[in-house]
Design a protein around this nucleic acid. Sequence first.
DNA 1: CCCACTTGACGTACACCTGACACTAACCCT
DNA 2: AGGGTTAGTGTCAGGTGTACGTCAAGTGGG
Lengths: 225, 225
Amino acid sequence: MTGLALPPQATQVGLAVDIAAFAMHGGELNVLLVQRGQLPHARDWALPGGFVQPGEELHEAALRELRTETTVQLEPRHLEQFYTFGEVGRDPRGRIVSVAHLAVLPHGTVSVSGGGHTLEAEWLSAHRPPRLAFDHQAILTRALLRLQLRLEYANLALEFLPDTFTLPELQGVYEAILDRQLDKRNFRKRLLAQSILTPSGERRSGVGRPAQLYRRAKNVRVAAL
Amino acid sequence: MTGLALPPQATQVGLAVDIAAFAMHGGELNVLLVQRGQLPHARDWALPGGFVQPGEELHEAALRELRTETTVQLEPRHLEQFYTFGEVGRDPRGRIVSVAHLAVLPHGTVSVSGGGHTLEAEWLSAHRPPRLAFDHQAILTRALLRLQLRLEYANLALEFLPDTFTLPELQGVYEAILDRQLDKRNFRKRLLAQSILTPSGERRSGVGRPAQLYRRAKNVRVAAL
DNA sequence: CCCACTTGACGTACACCTGACACTAACCCT
DNA sequence: AGGGTTAGTGTCAGGTGTACGTCAAGTGGG
């Protein structure tokens, strides 16, 4: 601090974060939605989010809102800001600018329930969500685009799975995110060629031939940009 | 408006925009920088930027700052938000969150001079800029990355040139942005294969064989993402 | 116990894109 | 006329993506 103050022309606006948190459930890509308990848009579904506290980093605010609006126990495996929504009329309460974040939660039935200002929290279909409050449909659409982009550029799909997984499971993640079918053989070839996976033991699937289990190779990180 | 007010937990922070405006000059990629006339960082180079006014859209604020801090007459051919910088300590005056924008200005010697709170404005090398104020070097680096990405995904290179241009000129834009040399023949092959260019008349270059002039084909737009 | 079913694993052929590379064509100036 | 300068062109090798058929290894039912 230098004793300098914010100049008078420094417009004060509400600064918020919204989070599009994704996880896989039953072969489907789900997004975490909350049912609002307050006006405006009471009882409507919305992305979790809220105002940034003074002295709080943007990503910290995103994590805090995830934890208080929903009871998600697991740490996100990935969290990145992807766009800032600041259109003047986007919130009836006044000028609120929201820095939207994309989060990926690991596998495991993440039990959620309401908390904070929300009546309820639920995992719902990301590609076919219910009607959302505010401009949250636009935010979700953009989050999906970014997620699909990260699938190719980074190896973000791994973040959806437990430490050890089979190739068909990984393919399922890709298919769920891209919302289309992929070819088994080409998928296998492509992924193994990247050498980001190392095999381990076996596993039975109940039906059909057991699949090889893989884990992410050492020194493989999710790309940044 | 519904009569709803901003809730008390709506933290008030300073909302700003910063603009990384690019243009080609003499075969080099330049970025528009201003010399600050005020504390903090007086007399240091910085990206043009400033606070968002109440009721003003983010991209409008970016355009206004471009026009007032520098005397750029030309409309940007491209303007997009690319990242929001909100780290707590990034500005000594307090919590200021800046939505960074990437702008592309068309060809033509854009004369600039100071205006508003700036002593001077100048086009300087984008890849080897002077030392910059605040975290503007980080903003510029990220802007360059985005610009390079847009080169492949969209056809953003066309925005740097006048309506009609030669292939070697276009190649020059690519090389300046990527900061490396490209092969003539492969570049030509690649670009013409995309069929986003249509030929027109001839042109003399003063030296050497005259080059074919092209213009962008109809219904070719810059991709959004 | 055997057979049918289910799912995992693997290889090949083709189209396409990319990158390396050297020479001729057209115009200017002296 | 000739030298200087820049524009324009083709081919080949290697890699990448995609389409596609077949065998392998389990499970479960009759």
